[in-house]
């Protein structure tokens, strides 16, 4: 039997409080491994991990690939160009094909919400959601939780402000419910155009003015502004956004002394953070990336460990 209450990680809600702490504790052990000279464990020898990334991504895909390889699993990367989906294969057919190749764990990133669920219904493999549309990005949330827990020791009573494109953010979709579950309070900070039509249904507080709450926050989490969508004009200009919601020297000075800045990356320098603020926050931003590998190793270990019965094949 596995150590988690779920076989897949499709949504952050698949994990209960205990599961989340199990993942974070396990990740701590893998972090030690990642600091060794020989960063390799035999743990998942002979298991096959397929990274199916049907949306451009380097950092998340690389992070999953490194995680699988450090655990000695055979990691195969499939990108849009290499995949049969460009030839018109349906997602269900892709799932059945990969299943026939006896894949043990599938990481999928897809531009439509729910794609990981479809895979889980058509494959025997464990599924990890690597980001689906505007829905969820649970492994990002877990590495953020890891970083926050390392910094503050826990979550109870922490005040977290998440700033930016709330309406279209899958990072928010996973992180906000997890933080709430763990006892932190979450405030969405954005102009009305970047909030969903019914912000009252977010399950989090919301406010338009960053400066009003900045001095009370323990964690200031900046979402990436997707410049590629700027032509839909959610705000007049990047410059205006930066002036109202960007972290600059002045706002850094008004944050609580032990507050931290977080960002899922990649940072648009001069938009979410000024050049100066990026450099101030650099250590923690890189810590998030570093923690990402350990957290993904932990998930693979916990999902694949104990999933076979003892009978001889």
């Amino acid at each position: 039997m596995g150590a988690l209450t779920t076989e897949h990680l499709l949504n952050i809600e698949d994990l209960n409080v205990e599961d989340i702490h199990t993942v974070l504790d396990t990740a701590l052990s893998f972090k030690e491994v990642n600091e060794r000279t020989i960063k390799k464990l035999p743990t998942l020898r002979g298991r096959t991990v397929i990274n199916l990334f049907l949306e451009p991504s380097t950092r998340t895909r690389t992070s999953f690939e490194i995680a699988a390889k450090r655990l000695s699993a055979d990691a195969i990367n499939m990108s849009p160009a290499a995949s049969a989906t460009v030839k018109g294969e349906s997602l269900v057919d892709t799932a059945k094909t990969l299943d026939a190749m006896d894949c043990d764990l599938l990481v999928i990133r897809h531009r439509y919400a729910g794609a990981p669920y479809i895979m889980s219904q058509n494959m025997r493999a464990h599924i990890i959601n690597g980001g689906d549309g505007k829905h969820q990005h649970p492994t990002q949330a877990l590495l953020d939780l890891f970083t926050i827990r390392e910094r503050f020791g826990g979550f109870e009573g922490l005040k977290v402000g998440i700033v930016g494109d709330i309406a279209h953010s899958r990072v928010f979709g996973s992180l906000a419910p997890a933080l709430k579950l763990l006892g932190a309070s979450v405030t969405a900070i954005a102009p009305a155009t970047l909030l969903p039509a019914r912000p009252d249904l977010l399950g989090a507080g919301y406010i338009h003015d960053l400066d009003e709450v900045l001095g009370h926050l323990d964690v200031v989490y900046l979402l990436r502004i997707q410049k590629e969508r700027i032509d839909q004009a959610p705000f007049p200009s990047l410059r205006e956004y930066a002036r109202l919601y960007g972290i600059n020297r002045d706002r850094l000075g008004r944050m609580k002394k032990d507050a931290i800045l977080m960002h899922p990356g990649p940072v648009n320098r001069g938009v979410e953070l000024t050049f100066e603020a990026v450099d101030t926050a650099a250590n923690l931003l890189l810590y998030q990336v570093n923690a990402g590998v350990a957290v993904r190793m932990a998930l693979m270990y916990l999902l694949l460990g104990g999933d076979r019965d003892g009978t001889l094949a």
């Binding site: 150590a3 052990s29 464990l41 270990y301 916990l302 694949l304 460990g305 076979r308 003892g310």
Partner: peptide, 22 residues
């Protein structure tokens, strides 16, 4: 030393409790 990640029966069962190797 915590040997959890080196066990030969990981596919059968794992212990969620880990101890850090130092």
């Amino acid at each position: 030393l915590d040997i959890s990640f080196y066990r030969d029966d990981i596919a059968l069962h794992i212990s969620p409790e880990l101890h850090t190797t130092n």
